[in-house]
């Protein structure tokens, strides 16, 4: 009798769980906390400003001496963050700096992701010498101070935007490779990989179609904090005078050029510092939020 009722219950369960759950359950954004809203909003705004900076109506050119030098902030678009010792709009320079920095960092991340993921996936899938080579690279890069690596590179090939992109990209290849490698190793013995083989899938197909989709969430969560790290590195380089050559605006360069005057015009440094701090904070918050989402979902799967 108990067996019978269990049977019915199991059948009900089967039927019930086969029913589609509310349509958006999987994609629904988990409740964001206030500071997470801020983080996503800030990064979205910054990206929009960086893309559109040339067409923002009324915004002065970054190198145009638009007003008196070293003015405190005032209630106008160009004067919102004050002016620098040459009378240029700090807001305009911060936004143009955002375009430069975000552009460089985005390309560097694309390079690092493409190379790192490919190398990491091959290392995790085939192990052996490929894995040892990838590990050696990742460990070496992880044990060197990033600034030194880049300075060495700049010393050899000279300073340019392209050099910066490549140099920053090289820094993160190892990190992405390691994460991809771990994700592949965790999947190698999964039944769905075996099932794909039993369907006649080649190695390349298994990597691209079965394993890669499972790597994407973890990699997505790690991108924002690594991008934040690159922004800091790029800022440090510009601050040291090895970044994007002036007069092109960059956050680090702006901080550097205002240090001489810091005692007399402390406000000069607020704009670029605020930009770096808020961007890095927001990116890290986004990373945490994505990681949390990922954990929640893994628990539900």
């Amino acid at each position: 009798m108990t067996a019978r009722s269990q049977d019915i219950k199991a059948q009900d369960l089967e039927a019930a769980s086969a029913l589609p759950a509310p349509a958006t359950a999987r994609l629904r954004w988990p409740r964001l906390k206030g500071f997470e809203w801020f983080a996503f909003g800030f990064v979205a705004l910054l990206i929009a400003a960086a893309v559109l900076v040339d067409v923002i109506p009324g915004l002065a050119r970054p190198n145009f001496p638009y007003g008196d030098f070293s003015q405190p902030p005032e209630w106008s678009l160009n004067g919102l963050l004050g002016t620098d010792p040459l009378g240029r709009s700090i807001l305009s320079r911060v936004l143009h700096g955002a375009r430069t920095t975000l552009g460089i960092v985005a390309v560097a991340t694309a390079i690092a992701l493409a190379i790192g993921m490919t190398a990491g996936m091959l290392a995790g899938f085939y192990r052996g010498p490929v894995e040892r080579a990838v590990d050696l690279y990742a460990n070496t890069m992880a044990s060197l101070p990033p600034i030194l690596v880049i300075l060495a590179l700049i010393a050899v090939v000279g300073n340019s935007v392209l050099t910066m992109m490549l140099a920053l990209g090289i820094l993160d290849i190892g990190v992405y490779a390691r994460i991809a490698k771990g994700g592949v190793i965790a999947q190698n013995d999964r039944d769905y990989v075996l099932a794909a083989r039993a369907m006649g899938a080649s190695d390349a197909r298994i990597l691209a179609r079965e394993i890669l989709p499972n790597l994407v969430p973890a990699l997505t969560a790690i991108v924002p904090p690594l991008v934040a790290g690159l922004i800091i590195t790029e800022g440090s380089l510009s601050f040291l005078g090895y970044g994007i050559p002036p007069p092109a605006p960059s956050w680090g360069g702006m901080i550097a050029s205002s240090t001489d005057l810091l005692s007399r015009f402390p406000l000069l440094v607020v704009g670029p510092i605020l930009a770096i701090v808020l961007t890095v904070y927001s990116l890290n918050t986004i990373g945490d939020s994505l990681a949390r989402r990922l954990n929640d979902r893994n628990r539900n799967l």
Binding site: A198, M199, A201, P213
Partner: peptide, 25 residues
Amino acid sequence: RKRALLGRKVGMVFQNPMTSLNPFV
């Protein structure tokens, strides 16, 4: 040649359907 036959001439069902379907596909 083996890959061309697997899935085409022989189909296979595994023991545990919870793990033999790819959760992200």
